[in-house]
Design a protein around this nucleic acid. Structure first.
Length: 502
RNA sequence: GGGCCGGUAGCUCAGUGGUAGAGCAUCUGACUUUUAAUCAGGUGGUCGCGGGUUCGACCCCCGCCCGGCUCACCA
């Protein structure tokens, strides 16, 4: 039998001992008077004398993270929501039963403690326990107290253990919630309505990506998990819901990396009677406020760089190529307007695709500060409205920060016949082997045929924005359960079977 | 999918072609303000899996599994 299983059985056996003392090994409701965070916030400044003069009684609950037993007394740190507080348990100060319970406690058990606040000789704010109760049993070995849990595979597979062992992880996911809350609140304040549109679609669209395929049994039809909500949200715009947004999952059947997870969360919002210039302004406002709400500052440190969300810069894609060109001789604006020059500097077959290809190779990773890049070629923008002055380009922009694309916006194409031509252009690209090219969506065109108001729309990658706000190097650090290959046999049911048979 | 790196005790990590190690955790004992508590003693390993080379493999070779980084693809 492995050490881990022996430990498991030892702890399993303690369930009976705990019950024999009159406690329920898996506890019952417990009214705590303060969260640990509230105690730390209110009493961290109080001196030992102040705490003694005005005795504060508290009732707290948490998971045992450390235990130091010394003869007839001892200390334990309990943790709640990522916050830790020390508890002092002395034989004289609790009942005989409670002291026996204390001697049975293991790392990872969850207990409730009532007592008064004081400072130890070394000055740490602590609870002097007067009563102790038992709330839940841990049967597992806990990660090392000093280093925590470092194995990234275990951290992602068993996120619960990561959250227990590494309190700062909770903080990152709190920040993620703040990001989402901030976007939602800001959009609601501006009159946007939150909606939910289908995740299972019989036609997929709104982005260039390969889909996941699933099947509905009773209808006997294959369905795609959506790659974007775009076409449904614009149907709502056509229907007269003038400002809508959705924050939800998209699914793209593509590789995983530090910046890509097959399912990821996207904010998309659409505003009738606006254009992409309005959204440039709005994007700057939204991001600035998100940074404030998530981190308390418009300047955010990311991987050693200071990102200033108070000042989102703007370049046209051509300006960016001229500015960030990596070779010794920077091209001129005339060069980057010239289809022959573009095709000579890229493997792509059209001037527009070549421009984007060059931009991605030369500029994208250099865009550290939050930056809007505007004017994208029509070939790569099948749903965006053309620029009236220059039909080869669309009224579209993307937002970059830390070398990552975090947003994409454009004035929506609302001319049904032009949309038909764009879809047909995509179909011919598909025939040439581009399996990410757009499908024809006739119901969407039909909606446009009823007349959709001039509209601007935008998508913002919530996971990536959260990476920036939490200084996360990998998208997996801001997704609670990132996609991993399934693990092998775990075998814990057998452990329980054996332990409970004894 | 390609390249590179990694998988050794529950956790964090050393290690060498010749009997598998440390710290923490765990167990026993001491200790009524400790805090990476301390002190004394003990338990604990299919060295990711499967082949091969060798007198002998955790170590060398081949295949596979899982993960990380990176490139490709993408947001």
């Amino acid at each position: 039998m492995s050490l881990e299983q022996e430990l498991f059985e030892q702890r399993f056996a303690r369930i009976r001992e705990i019950a024999a003392l009159g406690y329920r090994p898996y506890g019952q409701r417990f009214d705590f008077s303060h969260t640990l965070g509230a105690i730390l916030a209110s009493y961290s400044e109080k001196t030992a004398e102040e705490l003694e003069a005005n005795r504060v009684t508290v009732k707290v609950a948490g998971r045992i993270q450390t235990i130091r037993r010394m003869g007839k007394a001892g200390f334990t740190h309990i943790q709640q929501s990522g916050e830790r507080l020390q508890v002092y348990i002395k034989k004289d100060a609790v009942s005989e039963n409670e002291y026996k319970l204390w001697q049975l406690l293991d790392l990872g058990d969850i207990i409730g403690v009532e007592g008064y606040l004081f400072r130890t000789r070394t000055g740490e704010l602590s609870v002097h326990a007067e009563t102790v109760t038992f709330l839940s049993k841990n049967l597992m070995g806990m990660p090392e107290k000093y280093h925590g849990l470092e194995d990234v595979e275990i951290r992602y597979r068993q996120r619960y253990l990561d959250l227990i062992a590494n309190p700062e992880v909770q903080q990152a996911f709190q920040t993620r919630a703040k990001v989402v809350r901030s976007f939602r609140r800001q959009l609601e304040e501006r009159g946007f309505t939150e909606v939910e549109t289908p995740m299972m679609q019989s036609l997929y669209g709104g982005a260039a990506a390969r889909p996941f395929i699933t099947h509905h049994n009773t209808l006997d039809i294959d369905l795609y998990l959506r790659i974007a909500p775009e076409l449904y949200l614009k149907r709502l715009i056509a229907g007269g819901m003038e400002r809508v947004f959705e924050i939800n999952r998209n699914f793209r059947n593509e590789g995983v990396s530090t910046r890509h997870n097959p399912e990821f969360t996207m904010l998309e919002f659409y505003q009738s009677y606006a254009d992409y210039r309005d959204l440039m302004q709005l994007t700057g406002d939204l991001l600035k406020q998100v940074a404030l709400d998530a981190t308390g500052n418009t300047v955010v440190e990311y991987q050693g760089q200071q990102l200033d969300f108070g000042n989102v810069r703007r370049y046209s894609i051509r300006e960016a190529v001229c500015e960030y060109w990596k070779g010794p001789v920077k091209p001129s604006m005339d060069n980057v307007r010239d289809p022959e020059w573009l095709l000579a500097h890229s493997e792509k077959t059209t001037a527009g695709e070549a421009l984007v290809d060059i931009f991605e190779r030369h500029c994208e990773d250099a865009l550290i500060q939050p930056t809007i890049i505007h004017e994208y070629p029509v070939e790569v923008s099948p749903l965006a409205k053309q620029n009236p002055e220059e039909p080869a380009m669309t009224d579209r922009f993307e937002v970059f920060a830390a070398g990552m694309e975090i947003g994409n916006a454009f004035t929506e194409l609302n001319d049904p016949d032009e949309q038909r031509r764009r879809f047909e252009m995509q179909l011919s690209m598909r025939e040439k082997g581009d399996d990410e090219a757009h499908q024809m969506d006739e119901d969407y065109i039909r909606a446009l045929c009823y007349g959709m108001p001039p509209t601007a729309g935008e998508g913002i990658g919530i996971d990536r924005v959260t990476m920036l706000m939490t200084n996360a190097k990998s998208i997996r650090d801001v997704i609670l359960f990132p996609l991993l290959r399934p693990e092998g046999e775990i075998g814990i049911a057998q452990w329980l079977r054996e332990a409970s048979a004894k």
